[in-house]
Design a protein around this nucleic acid. Structure first.
Length: 115
DNA sequence: ACATTGACCGGTT
DNA sequence: AAACCGGCCAATG
């Protein structure tokens, strides 16, 4: 009965979780698709996250969502997003990638401080 | 109902 | 270093 409703924020729709997480990304920060999937309990379902993004819901700062390597995703909009992120104060590398090392959101940096 | 595709990721070859 | 592959789940034809 009421139990079903309770899930509608964490497990009900993968997408819903994605939207909420992306919406919580602080200013000047970025996150990878895999990272989002990771939070939702599906470390391998990064594709689903991208799928949800492609649908592009309203008011969702999808521009802050990049690939694990810091490469800008988003097909034809990738170049545009670089400008948006730059405008947010996100650090960029000479390769045209986002500096995940400085702008990675919600990441436990206990690992590989220098590897 | 089945097959194909899709803003990806990480490990192998 | 580059290419390939499997995995995850949903939408489309």
């Amino acid at each position: 009965m009421a139990k079903q409703n309770q899930e509608n924020q964490e497990s009900s729709s993968f997408f819903a979780g994605v939207y909420q997480i992306v919406a919580q990304i602080p200013f000047g920060k970025v996150i990878s698709y895999g990272q989002i999937a990771w939070m939702l309990g599906k470390p391998r379902a990064a594709r689903m996250v991208g799928w949800a993004m492609r649908r592009c819901p309203d008011g969702l700062p999808w521009q802050r969502v990049v690939m694990a390597d810091g490469t800008l995703a988003g097909g034809p909009y990738a170049d545009l997003r670089r400008e948006l992120l730059k405008a947010e104060g996100v650090a960029f590398l000479p390769d045209g990638r986002v500096d995940m090392d400085a702008c990675r959101w919600e990441l436990f940096r206990t690992e590989t401080p220098q590897k």
